[in-house]
Computed example of a mutant assay.
Amino acid sequence: MPFTLFVDNQCPLCRRECEHLRRWDKLNRLRFEEITDTSWHPRFPQVDPQYCQKVLHGVDERGRLHTGLEVTLAAWDRVGRGHWVSWLHWPLLRPLSDLGYRHFARHRHRISSWIFKETPCDQGQCQLGDRR
């Protein structure tokens, strides 16, 4: 079973990162589940669908749940690009990396709209819920 990422395809920046991961995943080590699609819920009872809206989730090959920046690092490792993000693991940077990730996750739609000048929220296509 591949490492499964629960992704927000309504976020342009998230979608772009997933496109890169798919392109680099020559050995099919990753699988992607859209967080707004409820069909995955019965297959992954350890994943809280509401919390997926706030923090990136992943389930590894053994069924263990991972969240936050750890999911990104694990995905990049599995596609052979872990060296590009390995510095995020460095002891002095790790707390800052985690803090930066949490900020990004909370504001991913707004950040994406600044970078790509597009967001489905502008057209009323997403429901972000309470972002506090």
Rank of each mutant, 00 (worst) to 15 (best):
C52A: 13
R62I: 03
L92D: 07
R31E: 12
R31Y: 04
C121A: 14
R106Q: 14
P42W: 00
R110W: 14
N28H: 12
G129S: 02
R31Q: 14
F44W: 04
A75T: 05
P91Q: 09
R43I: 00
A105D: 02
L128S: 07
K117H: 15
L88R: 01
S113A: 15
P49A: 07
C126S: 09
D98F: 00
W76Q: 08
R132I: 08
V7H: 06
V85Y: 02
T119Y: 07
S86I: 06
R15M: 09
W76E: 05
T38E: 14
P91K: 08
I35C: 06
F116K: 12
D25Y: 03
E61P: 08
R106G: 11
R16A: 12
D98T: 01
C121Y: 08
R15I: 00
Y51L: 13
P120D: 06
R43A: 15
F6M: 11
L21A: 07
Q50L: 07
R132C: 12
V85L: 14
R108K: 13
D122Y: 03
L56A: 01
H66Q: 12
P2V: 07
H57S: 08
L13R: 03
Q46A: 14
Q10W: 14
V59N: 08
N9H: 10
P2Y: 05
H89C: 11
L13G: 01
D60S: 05
T119E: 10
D98G: 00
Q127A: 13
S39M: 00
P12R: 01
E33K: 15
K117P: 06
S113P: 01
C121P: 03
P49Q: 09
F116L: 14
L93N: 03
V79D: 09
E19C: 04
R31A: 15
P120H: 09
Q50W: 00
Q53P: 02
P91I: 05
R110N: 10
L21N: 02
R110F: 15
E19N: 09
F104E: 13
P91H: 08
C14P: 06
G100E: 00
E33G: 10
L96Q: 03
L73S: 02
C18V: 13
F116R: 11
L69K: 04
A105G: 00
H89Q: 11
D48G: 05
R64V: 05
L69C: 08
H20I: 15
Q125S: 06
D122R: 15
